[in-house]
Computed example of a mutant assay.
Amino acid sequence: MRRLEIILEKDKQERVSALLEGSEVVEKWEVKTIEGYVILNVLLQDEYSTTLLQELEKEAYHRVIIHPVEGTLPKVDLPDTEEKDKISFGKFITISKEELYSDVDEPVSLSVNFLLMIILSSFVAGIGILKDNVAIIIGAMVIAPFLGPNMSMAFGTTLGDWHIIRKSMLTGIVSTLITLAISFFWGMFASGVGDITMDPDLGMQDIVLALVCGFAGVISVLGGQGGSLVGVMVAAALVPPLVRAGLLFGGGYYTDALNSFLIFSTNIICLNIAGIITFYLAGIRPGKWWEKEKAKRKTRNAFLIWSFGLVLIIVAILVIRKLGGEQ
Rank of each mutant, 00 (worst) to 15 (best):
R2S: 11
Q13D: 12
E14D: 06
A18Q: 12
A18V: 00
L19M: 08
L19A: 11
L20M: 06
L20V: 02
K28N: 08
E35W: 15
G36V: 01
Y37S: 05
Y37F: 04
L40A: 02
V42Y: 02
D46P: 10
E47K: 10
Y48A: 13
S49L: 14
L52I: 10
E55G: 01
E55H: 09
E55F: 00
L56G: 05
R63V: 15
I66T: 04
I66A: 00
L73M: 12
D77T: 15
D80L: 13
D85G: 09
I87N: 14
I93H: 10
I93D: 10
E98T: 09
D105R: 07
E106I: 13
L110I: 06
F114K: 14
L116P: 03
M117L: 14
F123T: 04
V124I: 15
D132Y: 10
G139L: 07
G139T: 15
A144L: 03
P145I: 14
G148R: 08
G148L: 05
P149K: 11
P149D: 13
T157F: 08
L159N: 04
G160W: 03
S168T: 15
M169F: 04
I173H: 10
V174K: 01
S175M: 02
I178K: 01
T179E: 12
L180D: 01
I182Q: 00
F184G: 00
F184P: 01
G187N: 03
A190S: 14
S191C: 03
S191M: 03
T197M: 14
M198L: 15
D201Q: 15
L202G: 01
G203Q: 13
I207K: 03
L209I: 11
L211E: 08
V218G: 06
L222I: 11
S228I: 05
L229A: 10
V230H: 02
V230D: 08
V232S: 08
V234E: 06
V239I: 11
L247Y: 06
L248S: 01
L248M: 10
F249K: 02
G250C: 02
G252D: 05
G252N: 07
G252S: 05
T255F: 02
L258F: 05
L258Q: 10
T266C: 10
T266H: 05
I269G: 00
N272E: 12
G275Q: 09
G283W: 09
K288M: 10
W289M: 14
K294Q: 13
K294C: 08
K298S: 02
R300I: 09
A302L: 08
F303P: 03
L304C: 08
L304M: 10
I305Q: 08
W306R: 05
F308N: 05
F308I: 11
F308G: 04
L312S: 03
I313A: 02
A316Y: 07
I320R: 09
Q327F: 05
